[in-house]
């Protein structure tokens, strides 16, 4: 069953076509990697899928709903209810502790629940560091908190924009393991990456070039290693 469908989506900034007639289809529960050189439109596409931006033209169907023409208020509701976001720069609220950062996501979604937030931190192996401020955590630990924050509301779709771009090998593996677990639980994952190793962990890789889908690669080895 299809969760996400982009039909002839374009995003144009003046003369520049950041996305040029893109057609993509992602099934429920699928794990997709998006690759491409810098400036090829990956982040632009993530913004549109993540309900933070609207395409200049084309349709974006998320769970059967066309989000390309929704009001920004409605987009906020959809993003909150269906999407978990992970960023390259592992953005955290600097003055809140790890567990509080996870609870912020709960707060906007429904109800803050410290127990549940601590459990989520436990899942990313940071239960002991729950009371630390971001400045007291390493980059890898911060990104793991962000993963915990993204999964806390059980979103249907997790969008990660170069989640391992700033991580060392060990933390990269932890994050990829977490993605694999989430995938097993049925969560749909779309991961933007530069790193072929990260792309190889996914079921399918979509390659963008100059705002267009250049090719798609099915990972034949998925689930074997």
């Amino acid at each position: 069953m299809s969760l996400l469908e982009l039909k002839n989506v374009s995003k144009i900034y003046g003369e520049l076509k950041a996305l040029d007639n893109v057609n993509i289809h992602v099934d429920q529960g699928e794990w997709v990697a998006i690759m491409g050189p810098s400036g090829s439109g990956k982040s632009t596409m993530m913004n549109i899928i993540g309900c933070m931006d609207k395409p200049t033209s084309g349709e974006v169907l998320l769970d059967g709903v066309d989000i390309s023409k929704e009001s920004s208020r409605k987009l906020t509701d959809i993003r909150r209810d269906k999407i978990g976001l992970i960023f390259q720069q592992f953005h955290m609220v600097g003055y809140l502790t790890a567990v509080e950062n996870v609870m912020v996501s709960q707060y906007y979604h429904s109800m803050p629940d410290e127990e549940e937030a601590l459990e989520a931190l436990g899942r990313v192996g940071l239960r002991e560091r729950a009371r630390h401020l971001p400045s007291q955590l390493s980059g890898g630990e911060q990104q793991r908190v962000c993963v915990a924050r993204a999964l806390i509301n059980h979103p249907e779709l997790i969008l990660a924009d170069e989640p391992t771009g700033n991580l060392d090998e060990a933390n990269e593996n932890i994050v990829l393991d977490l993605f694999a677990q989430l995938h097993k639980e049925g969560t749909t994952l779309i991961v933007v990456t530069h790193d072929p190793e990260v792309a190889e962990a996914a079921q399918r890789t979509i390659v963008l070039e100059h705002g267009r889908v250049a090719r798609e690669i099915i990972n034949e080895n998925f689930g074997k290693s």
Partner: peptide, 16 residues
Amino acid sequence: RREIGLRKALGASDGS
């Protein structure tokens, strides 16, 4: 700015 953007990305409404 970043923090506010983050909060919004996490689903904060204008009212929040």
